[in-house]
């Protein structure tokens, strides 16, 4: 009973953090472009996260069954608690870190330590997708920008209107895929049932309106400094890849795909001024987060 309550509390906390943290990346461009108000953006985020979780989030049960089958409630709680601690510490020391990558590292570490019958082939496919997805996102964004730049524009304003509508749709789909993938993974870690889903939905509301709204405009405007086409292409590439990953029941970080797509869009121009430092820090985070989490999962949780 204690672990059941703890698990519900941890799901609430983890989903709240993820939805607050990912809101700006999903709806930020639409808010930054002033297509939506901050409040409407937050509402769209809530609808997207919730719809994704309800319609496709259950797919992550397969992921959990492959990573940590037959786990006890105590182990599930320990994994979620460790993931939250890692995420909060990384946030406090300002290191970009994906909760889904960290959670997968912890699950694999804990499964190996407890000899729970982890499916090695599934872990390989997850790791393979983590390498393939950013490269694919960068390539898709690179060529999409090239194609867009080559196209002759007959009506400038019609084109901008098209971008704006597309950005709005992508804001929703991006939130949807985050709901289906990362939030779905968190809920599935604790067992995908009515209680955890309801707790997650309420956590989405609180996370979005209490933690996410403040950063929307700032992140959105920074994101938006990339121009309409870049923002649209980056969101489209990340949405497609995260949706494909969700379809394959593989956890994939939305921010990982978006960052790679932003990079791909940036290098597609003939004359460019790119600062590589932030990308290298993020890349370092992608490697360190799962490995560190794996170590925590293997050594600490097994103690």
């Amino acid at each position: 009973m204690v672990f059941e309550l703890l698990l519900i509390a941890l799901v609430f906390l983890a989903v709240m953090l993820v939805s607050g943290n990912n809101l700006s990346a999903c709806v930020g461009p639409a808010v930054g472009a002033r297509i939506l108000s901050k409040r409407a953006g937050a509402f769209l985020g809530v609808v997207g996260f919730t719809t994704g979780l309800l319609l496709q989030g259950w797919g992550m049960i397969n992921s959990i069954n492959s990573l940590i089958p037959n786990a006890t409630m105590q182990l599930q709680s320990e994994v979620l608690m460790a993931a939250i601690v890692v995420f909060v510490v990384a946030h406090l020391v300002r290191v970009p870190l994906s909760l889904s990558m960290s959670l997968v590292g912890l699950l694999v570490g804990a499964a190996l330590a407890h000899n729970l019958g982890l499916q090695a082939s599934y872990v390989f496919s997850v790791v393979a997708l983590w390498f393939i997805a950013p490269i694919a996102a960068a390539i898709v964004a690179f060529y999409l920008i090239r194609v867009i730049s080559r196209q002759k524009v007959r009506n400038i304003w019609r084109r901008i209107r098209f971008y704006k509508v597309l950005l709005l749709i992508l804001a929703f789909t991006s939130a949807y895929t985050t709901g289906a993938n990362t939030i779905g993974l968190i809920v599935a870690t604790a067992g995908f049932n009515i209680t955890t889903v309801l707790v997650a939905v309420s956590a989405v509301f609180i996370g979005v309106f209490c933690l996410g709204e403040g950063a929307i405009r700032r992140v959105g405007e920074e994101f938006y400094l990339m121009r309409y086409s870049n923002a649209t292409v980056a969101l489209a590439a990340s949405t497609i890849l995260v949706e494909v990953a969700s379809f394959l029941n593989i956890p994939l970080s939305n921010t990982q795909a978006t960052t790679a797509a932003v990079f791909g869009a940036g290098i597609s121009y003939k004359s460019k001024f790119l600062s590589l430092k932030p990308y290298l820090i993020i890349l370092g985070g992608w490697i360190v987060a799962p490995l560190l989490s794996f170590s925590i999962g293997y050594f600490l949780i097994s103690i």
Partner: peptide, 13 residues
């Protein structure tokens, strides 16, 4: 009304 607002291109205005 909200949809019309989305279609407003600020730069054009």
């Amino acid at each position: 009304k909200s949809f019309k607002r989305i279609l407003v291109v600020g730069e054009e205005n």
